[in-house]
């Protein structure tokens, strides 16, 4: 009996040595040759979600531009935090990309100390689309404009309910920002995802809805959209004023892009940046995005880093005010 165990231990040791050798060979690569093998594109959300749809749209173009196969993989959990925690620990060799959502990557480390990554560790390659957040009320509501809503909320502090997706999320922050700018108090009710919040709103459980532009476009007939958080008039919803135009100096939205681990070679980032941004120029891609209720956005690495930094500064201020109260 003893000898068999010994044999097993021996075999294991052998495997160790073998493995160690296999690993040490060929770890450095000239960025000029990148990419020379398949690339993993990780989606930190469930399959079938909007991030997935976007990645699936990009996949064939990427494969063509980079000349390598791109494998989509899912790492859902914690509103994306599990996937991003994995990303920052990966080798910065350009073979592991991850979808990236703003403000998620800013708000998660700010709101929970045990988040496994820092915003700065996530190196953006590009931001390719934006989903402005809009504010809507029921079709037969007596509220007809953002001003009406603010007035009603002023008259009845804390009794106007608003549905949105998640706590310390894009929707929640938009809600807090509006509350702050308008000097009103409302009740935010978080749901776990955009679809459940739309459903609760359509079922009459809340008076107001904070929703992504894609959902607003989809349900445009069933609700009154008061305002939208884009910088300029949102193309798919031309009649809806921006929140800015309604007198509150804020924009609200979710930006989607792609990121690599910290320490990735700038040459690799540049290659990926070009590949991703070129997709937007492919015929039909922009129209498809508009039809789905998204706004195409073309923001490269440098601009994205700056954008994230400004956003972070802005959000920390809002969160401090909330938590200070």
């Amino acid at each position: 009996m003893k000898t068999k165990w010994l044999a097993l231990v021996f075999v294991l040791c052998g495997l160790f040595v073998l493995g160690a050798c296999a690993n040490s060979a060929g770890s450095t690569e000239d960025p000029e040759d990148y990419p020379s093998k398949k690339i993993t594109y990780s989606i930190p959300f469930d399959p079938g979600g909007q991030s997935d749809v976007e990645a699936r749209r990009q996949q064939p173009y990427l494969e063509e531009a980079l000349g390598q196969s791109v494998v989509i993989q899912y790492k859902p959990g914690g509103g994306g935090s599990v996937g991003w925690t994995e990303l920052v620990d990966k080798d910065p060799d350009g073979y592991f990309l991850s979808g990236m959502n703003i403000p998620h990557i800013i708000l998660q480390p700010l709101s929970n100390d045990d988040t496994g990554y820092e915003t700065e560790d996530i190196v953006p390659v590009a931001i390719v689309q934006a989903t402005p957040i809009g504010i809507a009320v029921s079709k037969d509501s007596d509220i007809n404009s953002l001003a009406d809503l603010v007035e009603k909320a002023k008259a009845n502090p804390g009794s106007v309910t608003a549905a949105g997706s998640g706590t310390y999320s894009g929707h929640h922050l938009a809600f807090l920002q509006l509350q702050d700018l308008a000097g009103v108090e409302m009740q935010y009710i978080p749901f776990d995802g955009a679809a459940p919040s739309v459903q609760a709103f359509l079922g009459g459980n809340t008076e107001v809805l904070f929703a992504n532009s894609s959902d607003l476009v989809k349900y445009a007939k069933d609700m009154k959209i008061l305002a939208i958080g884009s910088e300029e008039t949102f193309k798919p919803l031309p009649d809806v004023p921006t929140i800015k135009a309604e007198g509150y100096d804020m924009t609200a939205g979710i930006d989607r892009g792609v990121a690599v681990p910290p320490g990735t070679d700038p040459a690799i980032i540049a290659k990926l940046e070009k590949a991703f941004l070129d997709i937007l120029d492919e015929p039909g891609v922009m129209d498809e995005m508009y039809a789905e209720g998204f706004e195409p956005k073309k923001m490269g690495h440098d601009a994205a880093v700056e954008y994230i930094a400004t956003k972070k500064e802005q959000y920390s201020r809002i969160l401090e005010e909330v938590k200070g109260n």
Binding site: P76, G77, G78, G79, S81, V82, T85, S111, N112, D113, D114, T115, G116, Y117, G166, T167, Y168, H172, P190, D192
Partner: peptide, 24 residues
């Protein structure tokens, strides 16, 4: 276990970030 769905805070993760997503 994980991030509270409504409160938004981490619970019972003991500072261990993979647990934020809760148990599958």
């Amino acid at each position: 276990i994980g991030i509270s769905p409504v409160g938004g805070e981490s619970r019972y993760t003991f500072g261990f970030s993979p647990l934020q997503a809760g148990l599958e």
